[in-house]
Design a protein around this nucleic acid. Sequence first.
DNA 1: AGCGATCAAATTGTATGCAATCTGACGATG
DNA 2: CATCGTCAGATTGCATACAATTTGATCGCT
Lengths: 237, 237
Amino acid sequence: MNPADGAMPVRDEAQDDRAQAIRDALHDAIVERRLAPGAKLVETEVGELFEVSRTVVRASLQMLAFEGLVKIERNRGAFVAHPTPDEARQIFESRRVIEPEIAERATERLTDADIERFQAHLKEEARLLAERGPNARRAAIKASGEYHLLLASVAANQILERFMRELIARSSLVIALYGQSGASSCARPEHADILDALIARDGKKAADAIRHHIDHIEEDLDYKVVASAPLRHVLRL
Amino acid sequence: MNPADGAMPVRDEAQDDRAQAIRDALHDAIVERRLAPGAKLVETEVGELFEVSRTVVRASLQMLAFEGLVKIERNRGAFVAHPTPDEARQIFESRRVIEPEIAERATERLTDADIERFQAHLKEEARLLAERGPNARRAAIKASGEYHLLLASVAANQILERFMRELIARSSLVIALYGQSGASSCARPEHADILDALIARDGKKAADAIRHHIDHIEEDLDYKVVASAPLRHVLRL
DNA sequence: AGCGATCAAATTGTATGCAATCTGACGATG
DNA sequence: CATCGTCAGATTGCATACAATTTGATCGCT
């Protein structure tokens, strides 16, 4: 996979060159877990890093807040989201609603070029899983999510694709918080299974494969074990 | 239905009291078709109406842009969205993916209080359809959308509910642009049929009823007849 | 020491000023 | 008369200044 496409702009047309760039950078940092859930994002600090005023930073933070990756509390600031177990369940329920349908639609539209992209991606995923070290692990997590986004792009529905982008990013946060083994579900060859169903043009099978895959991801979670308590949310504030 | 709940704030917790209020007002104006697709929203103008600075207005417009109700073009300003036929198809495809599943989940969670809310809403819808005049028509359109949101709220998934809110609002724009008879689909007793299936606890039947309902809404559209051309989008810019 | 009030530093919320850009009009030129 | 260039007005993009709010610390009192 092209190493430059990590940004993957959310809006069709660039509207705020700079705000969008900052959003992308923060988005990646959150998804790759370089920014922990609950971390505070101070406007002036971010602004100095990117050499822009707070105005632009605020726009970026608002974007991330809309996507659910950041939570803005009035007069207190912006924090990397810290999904509750309940939110986590809703995220996966939403994925169970949307992704199987996306898979069915993707089956009908899959081109040879798409297949090549999938295969190249699978190869890259395997390579990252074989590597050791935290950076490889981070890259593997990110690549795993991008597989699902690749699937969404094939379905040719920009709205559902955007919904998926949000759900994938938030899933990454959930896994960071509640994931157990961290890699057990990723190690399964389920991504390859899904691709097989697509190539066979079997929509039902592809949808089922996705459902099972989501089941397995969620099975690896333990909502009891909260690594870093969000302090304020624990007491339902 | 409570006449004060038209705003229906998008974000769980109030974050920008004022920006949110302006967003709600503009949202209602767009959904009720007091603001035509393509209309320009000048920052200073809106700001004077609500007696706030452009800063706050910009935040509101950004919110609406994220929901797809407003399109912001760099250095040109914010315009009420003007969905293309292709976008319209994607909106309804997305609804076909999400709403039947919402109906199934709602079936499992429906309480007596919910049923009463539905019935009160149906009564109000019937009343508005019987009335004449553009204001009654507007209110009927809005109420029709709110029925679907009521359904979404029963499903107890805030994420899917938010997705639905966006899709319903954008559907309203699509119907404004491409709707033919304007009321044929609304006149059908399909909302009541859906409620019957819910009460019968028949998830499959409810899902089918929703699917048929969406089919009928879309059948009433004619993508050929574009009332007010968006000029710039016609030529794929 | 424990407790509470007051204050200062840090941070966000909002308004406003200036620069950049777009738009439409006017006028010069062929 | 048509066409193009220039310019003024309007509008947005961005930075910055000031107000409001939160937060943590210090000091005094019991």
